[in-house]
Design a binder for these strands. Structure first.
Lengths: 222, 222
DNA sequence: ATGTCAAACGAACGTTCGTTAGTAATCTGC
DNA sequence: GCAGATTACTAACGAACGTTCGTTTGACAT
């Protein structure tokens, strides 16, 4: 057995709305857990089948190949990310600072709520062939671009002061990505608090000008 | 072929001082490249041997198993990280702000100079058995603790103002980790500039009080 | 009872995996 | 130029891989 797990989370694997009914859903969820824990190559079809309470042959009655399982998970993961970010931005104002808060809270929230989905969708995307991965890859590019556009608008409006826009995007995105690997519901802070703190860090990275209604919330979550 | 590479870098794989002489070194370097590009499970002994210009059986005259190859790479990676951070801290002052700059510059510098080593040492560590991975895992824990201690000292001295110490450590560490995946020498900024910008972002995350000699360097690298 | 159909099955396919035994080639020190 | 050690080789091992084949099962409609 390994000395260190690939990710800390162990439960809440797949949302009901992402999970197909019947065996399809059971198999997909088992694949998600095993891909997250052992990686795509390290998880065998036989293990996935056994974890689903099904024989390996049955798996191929529901999915044409192991790779299609991964493709489905990557697609679901990135679509949930986009859905979550879009909903958050629709509920935020036009101020780039509010939008950054909304984006980072949604971004981090996705990685705390569905850590396995996030780990697989981001960390195993490279295992997909060009044909099966192209659509998902485009989704990821768009999500990055959304944040980049927000940051750029903030710089143009003078509310952000940042040495380098794209490096700020990679920094903010990167620190959020890592959350999926260490967060568990047993952590001393709940997901909401982690998201709030990371949103504050993002604003600090961006050198955000103080927002009258927000600044006093800075130190209240330690 | 995949639509997206696992990491962007393709060269400068292993430092001479990390590379054993003769075939041992050639094999280790080939293993590093293949582990970084395809993952530990995804890279086969036959591929590593072929990339080394050697037959599979020869590999076992130099390393007792495939896992020992990974263990060696994880160890080298984390020891280079510790060496780099230690050297940087010895050349920095006692002010926690200087120490954070030193740490982040070394941290990011390691991930730009040896992206493959960083990707393997961090991203494949979980594939090691408890026996082979314990020492390296302890190295990683110590490196994290070094940063945590610096941040805590800064908070105690009143030069940092941060909502949550450990979340700041994960954020700073996480954004640096991700650099190994996207940085290439062809990037618009060189490694030094990336490290400088990330060091600035780290200070911002920590809400660092202005340092007289430093503050005017904030916007000069965009 | 009989026919239909989706779902699951046992068994096996050819391939690749990490690894090893035994042997030939090459270098080192005298 | 020979002995001993090192290095690399050919060939093969058992196990596991993703996948497919032909069949059986169980529920429901005729």
């Amino acid at each position: 057995m390994s000395v260190v797990r690939r990710l800390a989370a162990t439960s809440t694997v797949l949302l009901p709305e992402h999970k197909p009914p019947g065996s399809r859903g059971v198999i997909l969820e088992a694949a998600l857990r095993l891909f997250a824990e052992r990686g795509y190559v390290g998880a065998s079809v036989r293990e996935i089948a056994e974890a689903s309470g099904v024989k390996p042959a049955t798996l191929y009655a529901h999915y044409p190949s192991k790779e299609h399982l991964l493709a489905e998970l990557c697609r679901v993961g990135h679509e949930e990310h986009r859905r979550s970010v879009r909903a958050a931005l629709l509920n935020s104002g036009t101020d780039p600072r509010d939008q950054v808060i909304a984006y980072v809270r949604a971004h981090v929230g996705m990685h705390t709520a569905f850590p396995m989905l996030a780990v697989v969708a981001n960390g195993e995307l490279h295992a997909l062939s060009a044909e099966l991965g192209a659509a998902t890859f485009e989704l990821r590019r768009q999500s990055e671009q959304v944040l980049a556009d927000i940051v750029q608008r903030g710089v143009d409006r003078g509310v952000f002061d940042v040495p380098h826009v794209w490096l700020a995007v990679t920094a903010i995105g990167g620190m959020g990505l890592r959350v999926a690997y260490w967060y568990t519901p047993e952590y001393e802070l709940d997901a909401e608090q982690v998201a709030d703190v990371y949103a504050e860090y993002a604003l600090r990275i961006l050198g955000a000008a103080p927002l009258n209604l927000r600044r006093e919330t800075r130190g209240d979550s330690s």
